[in-house]
Design a protein around this nucleic acid. Structure first.
Length: 947
RNA sequence: GGGCGAUUAGCUCAGUGGGAGAGCGCUGCCUUCACACGGCAGAGGUCGCUGGUUCAAUCCCAGCAUCGCCCACCA
């Protein structure tokens, strides 16, 4: 074996082997265990969030597979409507083309082509992480099967009246020309102004002042509202105002929506361009006056008919620029340009009271960055209330459990205030809505045109032409079906039968609303059961300073760079290419050079995975510090070298470790008992999704127990010429046996290094299995009385050794110099511990002799091991001053303890009310402390004499 | 405005109603035949503040301060 662990050589080889052998597919007859991979965008790249999440899922998957479950990790990718379409549109842009130049069919073909080319990027990146997904079952949300499921759901919901089409205000992206959901709108505070505009009264009695952050929308005003009880404006209610610049008259209405305290107490009402105003308009039957085009330019359309708006009683949609009274100068102008003109004109007409700087929340599309416009369009909606109610109930009843538990509050909060889901998007890439229109505009919904012609044969003659709705469905519509569509629904497949409901969903809190809630609703609706029993919500990966990782901040870490390493120049280049704002390049370059002066080292997959596991605490933010991964890379090396030690000793010995005639010493019994405890901790950690605690248990066991103590203890036996053969065999066996079990314990966390070492280890124990993946997870053993005795004995032995080491270190005695040690006192147990383990103690403490004395010599340094006093007489080396100071410090600490315990025990209430065992514990503690103080005090007196 | 959460060693974070922990960093010693990606020993914290409950509070409760996130949003 090499002296240093080198992950590069082994990782891809093992992965290819696993995949080729089909080890990722469900097998065996155990209880099913299934995880659905949140499908990443098909054209995306694997980022730290994916890597983190997939590591956790892989740990669960490998763990359950080893525990004998029939385990499926269902993988696949998402077509990601807007994101993917934008990527391809950007490519066209470079060629000076738009999607309209190609036309819908050619464009979607181009997207498919791009999907075929780049779709494997992210899945291959996943493979580098060692993820044991069942690639043979990989799905894509626009697969034929999944598209069938989408149509099926749409048609059934429509037939039940749970999908409808309506003209409503939506969040309109004027760059992408599509509706987007509330969740895709990001509002951030920006600097703006508040314009105070005078609206003249028609009766000539002056004017009222309205304030707005968006003066251009005044063209679409349908009224001015005041609070019904606002005394200042009672005489105005019902009267008309002149709407400046348009020649229109608008009424003053009374509505409780108005806050009389705010501004002048007069609010302009623009029903077609503001969500609140829309509702006010609905209450007062105001017309919807649409002043914008799809590009958010001022409309120039004329000759339009008044359109009846059928959702409410009698509301009219006004879209005709002449009727609205839009001055010629504004028509076709961009909204921001129009704003300037309008403000100028108002000023010229002396209708502008004042302009105040004002901070406001500006809504922007999360994909395009464009300012979102509330805009009146025809869209498809899912009536959500009937679906939300059982979904809320499922969590209330405990059919679904959130981990950590308090996420259910967030879920309830959203689900109880949920509004109908707008599912149509004006894109070309996605599932086209299965609705067709006849020439009269009547709508027919069905799985395909043929079905519709049959279903509606009474309405349709064979020669009636039908045109399919141009819109596509929101990406999340198909994602919502993922837990059952991937298993074959609407067919009744064996996989569906076996794996639905799935075991757990592992996801970030950022998509609880987008995805989790919708899967729950759809799962209950169409499968009659929840899609998963548990939802484990993990934190989001941020940089070391807690900042979100983003291209524009230039703080992105690529998980593959952490695995393979990257030099500084390449890293800088990677971070500064393809940026939205090239200006930032300089700053990012500087920052990167400062943070990573040497670039990024190669750490290997296992170190990265272990880092992720150890970071998986319950917090919301996971701050990823590269220093952390260094520590776990070192840990991998530690494991590697511990194994190397074991192998070297096996090779050096002629003993057959598989011969069952062997004898175990205290160290062997001890490490076996400790191992069982470690397994227990790992089981608990995984069962409670505390991957950090599980990882910590592994780390501590290996480093602090197996390496620091057991390996050292084993040396005393193996190098002892007087040790018996069966004793040495017992030691060798325990070394390799614990190692082999450890590898299985660690495998879910670190698949590669464990597989590699396992193949060198397991054969020594007569196990010639093909892969560690298919080996059983280690079992715990019961903590017996004798195991407890072993733990007690060993901890005393350690105490003794630590005492000697401290004496050595604090008095600067050379580490190699053997010490003559004297002992005094001690309980019968301690005396027998010492006798039985003198070999361990002498070797690890580098002790030349141990003699028992009745009285302490004056010139000795002291340490305590329980009741036993350890003395090292060192006339030539001792510095009485230093030793006195050390003892004083130690005594101060003990006296402090003594004071605290005595105060407790002197408190009557404590004696009376505290549980008996707590009181006894304190009494015992006091005895020990007093005894220690007595011993140290005595020694202190002796040392003082030397001064 | 509504909701959720955080505040523990220089940094990043675990943790428990009854003796404050880890990793990294730091200090000293050690190139000892698994490992310097190492070994041994050590320094360092009034557990945000103020009250309350309790025999006992870093932990439970209330208030405050600071910070963060989500949702909504007053024109």
């Amino acid at each position: 074996m090499d002296k240093t662990y080198n992950p590069k050589n082994i990782e891809t080889t093992w992965y290819q082997f696993w995949e080729k052998e089909g080890y990722f597919a469900p097998a065996g007859g155990g209880d099913p265990y299934c995880i659905m991979l949140p499908p990443p965008n098909v054209t995306g790249n694997l980022h730290m969030g994916h890597a983190f999440q997939q590591t956790l899922m892989d740990i669960l998957t490998r763990y359950h597979r080893m525990n004998g479950n029939q385990t499926l990790w269902q993988c696949g990718t998402d077509h990601a409507g807007i994101a993917t379409q934008m990527v391809v549109e950007r490519q066209l842009e470079l060629k000076g083309q738009s999607r309209h130049d190609l036309g819908r069919e050619t464009f979607t073909q181009a997207v498919w082509k791009w999907k075929e080319e780049s779709g494997s990027t992210i899945t291959n990146q996943s493979r580098r992480l060692g993820t044991s997904m069942d690639w043979s079952r990989e799905r894509f949300t626009m697969d034929e099967g999944l598209s069938d499921a989408v149509k099926e759901v749409f048609v059934r919901l429509y037939d039940e009246g749970l999908i409808y089409r309506g003209k409503r205000l939506v969040n309109w992206d004027p760059v992408l020309h599509t509706a987007i959901s509330d969740l895709e709108v990001i509002s951030e505070e920006e600097d703006g102004n508040m314009w105070h505009i005078r609206y003249p009264r028609c009766d000539g009695k002056g004017h009222v002042i309205v304030a707005t952050t968006r003066p251009e929308t005044m063209l679409g005003d349908a009224a001015v509202a005041v609070h019904p009880e606002d005394e200042r404006y009672q005489d105005l209610i019902g009267h008309d105002l002149e709407l400046p610049l348009t020649g229109r008259k608008i009424p003053v209405i009374a509505d409780e929506y108005v806050d009389p305290e705010f501004g002048t107490g007069c609010v302009k009402i623009t029903p077609a361009h503001d969500f609140n105003d829309y509702e006010v308009g609905e209450r007062h039957t105001l017309p919807l006056i649409n002043i914008f085009t799809h590009d958010a330019r001022i409309t120039s359309k004329t000759g339009m008919e008044l359109e009846h708006h059928d959702n409410t009683a009698t509301r009219y949609v006004l879209e005709d620029a002449d009727i609205i009274g839009i001055p010629q100068a504004y028509r076709d102008k961009d909204r921001f340009e129009a704003r300037k003109l309008i403000v100028q004109d108002l000023e010229a007409a002396d209708l502008l009271e004042k302009i105040e700087p004002h901070k406001l929340m500006v809504p922007r599309g999360d994909r395009s960055g464009a300012v979102i416009e509330p805009y009146l369009t025809d869209q498809w909606y899912v009536k959500i209330q009937p679906l939300a109610e059982p979904a809320i109930e499922a969590v209330e009843k405990g059919d679904i459990k959130f981990v950590p538990g308090n996420w259910d509050k967030t879920y309830y909060e959203w689900m109880r205030n949920i509004e109908d889901w707008c599912i149509s998007r004006q894109l070309w890439w996605g599932h086209q809505i299965p609705a067709w229109y006849d020439p009269d505009g009547n709508v027919y919904v069905g799985r395909n045109e043929e079905e519709i012609r049959q279903k509606y044969a009474s309405h349709l003659t064979p020669d009636t032409s039908l045109v399919q709705d141009e819109d596509v469905l929101d990406t999340w519509f198909s994602s919502a079906l993922w837990p059952f569509s991937t298993l074959g629904w609407p067919e009744k497949t064996p996989e569906l039968e076996t794996f639905y409901p799935t075991s757990v969903l592992v996801t970030g809190f950022d998509i609880i609303f987008f995805w989790v809630a919708r899967m729950i609703m759809m799962g209950i609706k169409f499968m009659g059961d929840v899609p998963f029993r548990e939802v484990y919500i993990h934190g989001l990966v941020r940089d070391s300073e807690g900042q979100k990782m983003s291209k524009s901040k230039g703080n992105i870490l690529d998980p593959l760079d952490l695995i393979d390493g990257i030099d500084l120049e390449q890293l800088v280049q990677k971070r500064t290419t393809g940026m939205m704002r090239p200006k930032d390049a300089e700053k990012i370059t500087k920052q990167t050079r400062k943070h990573f002066p040497e670039g990024i080292d190669s750490y290997g997959t296992d170190a990265l995975r272990f880092t992720f596991a150890s970071l998986a605490t319950q917090g919301r933010g996971i701050n990823f510090d590269v220093g952390r991964i260094t520590g776990y890379r070192n840990f991998c090396n530690k494991i590697w070298n511990a194994s190397r030690y074991v192998m070297m000793n096996l090779d050096a010995s002629e003993l057959d470790v598989n011969d069952e005639d062997r004898e175990l010493g205290l160290a062997e019994h001890w490490i076996n008992a400790r191992f069982s405890q470690a397994v227990d901790q790992v089981n608990t950690g995984i069962a409670t999704y505390r991957f950090d605690l599980a990882a910590q248990a592994i780390y501590e066991f290996i480093w602090d127990e197996y390496c620091d103590w057991y390996l050292e203890l084993s040396k005393t036996t193996l190098t002892d010429d007087t040790a018996t053969e069966i004793r040495k065999r017992g030691t060798l066996f325990t070394l390799v046996n614990i190692l082999e079990q450890l590898l299985r314990l660690m495998h879910p966390f670190m698949p590669f290094i464990t597989e590699e070492i396992w193949h060198r280890t397991a054969p020594r124990l007569g196990n010639d299995g093909n892969t560690i993946m298919q080996q059983p997870f280690p079992k715990t053993s019961e903590v017996t009385e004798s195991a407890r005795a072993v733990l007690t004995e060993m901890s005393w032995v350690k105490l003794f050794i630590l005492g000697v080491r401290r004496i050595r270190s604090e008095r600067d005695i050379a580490p190699g110099k053997p010490l003559a040690v004297q002992i005094m006192g001690g309980t019968e147990d301690e005396k027998s511990f010492l006798q039985a383990n003198s070999s361990y103690i002498s070797t690890l403490g580098k002790i030349s002799s141990i003699t028992s004395v009745e009285e302490s010599p004056d010139d000795a340094i002291i340490a305590l091991a329980g009741d036993m006093t350890i003395l090292v007489p060192l006339t030539d080396i001792i510095d009485p001053k230093a030793e006195s100071a050390r003892l004083e410090k130690e005594l101060a600490r003990l006296n402090n303890d003594k004071g605290r315990i005595e105060a407790k025990l002197n408190n009557r209430n404590f004696i009376d009310r505290a549980p008996e065992d707590v009181v006894n514990k304190e009494k015992h503690k006091l005895e020990e402390t007093l005894a220690s103080i007595a011993k140290l005090e005595e020694q202190h007196q002796r040392i003082l004499k030397l001064l």
